[in-house]
Amino acid sequence: MHDRPHGLSDAERLNRLRLIRSDNVGPRTFASLLRHFGDAATALERLPDLARRGGASGSGRICSEADAAAELAACGKFGIDLVAPGEAHYPSRLATIDDAPPLLGVRGACDALMRPMIAIVGSRNASGAGLKFAGQLARDLGDAGFVVISGLARGIDQAAHRASVTSGTVAVLAGGHDRIYPPEHEDLLAALLDQGAALSEMPLGRVPRARDFPRRNRLISGASLGVVIVEAAHRSGSLITVRMAAEQGREVFAVPGSPINPRAAGTNDLIKQGATPVTEAADIINAVAPIMERPIMLGVREDDEPLDFATDPSDRARIVSLLGPSPISLDDLIRMAGVPPAVVRAVLLELELAGKLERHGGGLVSMI
Score class of each variant (00 low, 15 high):
residue 356 K to M: 13
residue 284 I to D: 09
residue 108 G to H: 02
residue 260 I to R: 15
residue 156 I to T: 12
residue 330 L to K: 15
residue 308 D to E: 08
residue 359 R to C: 07
residue 234 H to L: 15
residue 236 S to T: 02
residue 53 R to I: 08
residue 309 F to C: 08
residue 174 A to P: 04
residue 173 L to V: 10
residue 59 S to W: 08
residue 347 V to T: 04
residue 345 R to Y: 02
residue 19 L to G: 00
residue 174 A to S: 08
residue 337 A to F: 09
residue 68 A to S: 10
residue 239 L to M: 11
residue 124 R to T: 13
residue 308 D to T: 13
residue 337 A to W: 09
residue 109 A to L: 14
residue 43 A to W: 00
residue 275 A to I: 03
residue 284 I to M: 03
residue 99 D to Y: 06
residue 182 P to D: 11
residue 337 A to L: 07
residue 360 H to E: 14
residue 60 G to Y: 09
residue 48 P to D: 06
residue 127 S to P: 03
residue 270 L to A: 03
residue 308 D to V: 09
residue 254 A to L: 06
residue 259 P to M: 10
residue 21 R to E: 10
residue 289 A to H: 10
residue 236 S to Y: 05
residue 165 V to W: 07
residue 38 G to I: 08
residue 197 A to R: 00
residue 182 P to Q: 02
residue 48 P to S: 12
residue 115 R to I: 00
residue 314 S to F: 06
residue 63 C to Y: 07
residue 363 G to V: 12
residue 159 A to D: 08
residue 263 R to G: 12
residue 45 E to W: 05
residue 181 Y to R: 01
residue 127 S to H: 08
residue 314 S to C: 13
residue 43 A to N: 05
residue 294 R to S: 06
residue 298 L to M: 14
residue 89 H to I: 11
residue 23 D to G: 08
residue 235 R to C: 04
residue 279 T to V: 13
residue 260 I to Y: 11
residue 323 L to E: 07
residue 355 G to A: 14
residue 294 R to Q: 11
residue 326 S to A: 15
residue 152 L to D: 10
residue 25 V to Q: 05
residue 174 A to W: 03
residue 117 M to Y: 13
residue 103 L to S: 08
residue 102 P to E: 08
residue 78 F to G: 09
residue 306 P to I: 04
residue 30 F to R: 10
residue 317 A to S: 12
residue 233 A to D: 09
residue 64 S to I: 08
residue 310 A to Y: 01
residue 30 F to N: 11
residue 222 G to L: 02
residue 286 N to M: 13
residue 103 L to E: 05
residue 240 I to P: 00
residue 163 A to L: 07
residue 358 E to F: 07
residue 344 V to D: 08
residue 124 R to K: 01
residue 221 S to C: 05
residue 329 S to K: 00
residue 122 G to H: 07
residue 152 L to S: 09
residue 244 M to E: 15
residue 242 V to D: 03
residue 181 Y to A: 11
residue 145 G to W: 04
residue 184 E to I: 14
residue 171 A to P: 03
residue 224 S to M: 09
residue 343 V to L: 02
residue 32 S to A: 15
residue 135 G to W: 12
residue 174 A to H: 07
residue 4 R to T: 12
residue 39 D to W: 04
residue 239 L to T: 00
residue 309 F to H: 02
residue 36 H to T: 09
residue 15 N to P: 02
residue 358 E to G: 11
residue 179 R to C: 07
residue 276 T to S: 07
residue 279 T to G: 14
residue 271 I to S: 10
residue 226 G to F: 01
residue 91 P to F: 05
residue 44 L to A: 11
residue 139 R to E: 15
residue 49 D to S: 13
residue 331 D to L: 13
residue 266 G to A: 06
residue 69 A to E: 10
residue 363 G to D: 10
residue 147 V to S: 09
residue 81 D to E: 14
residue 341 P to Q: 10
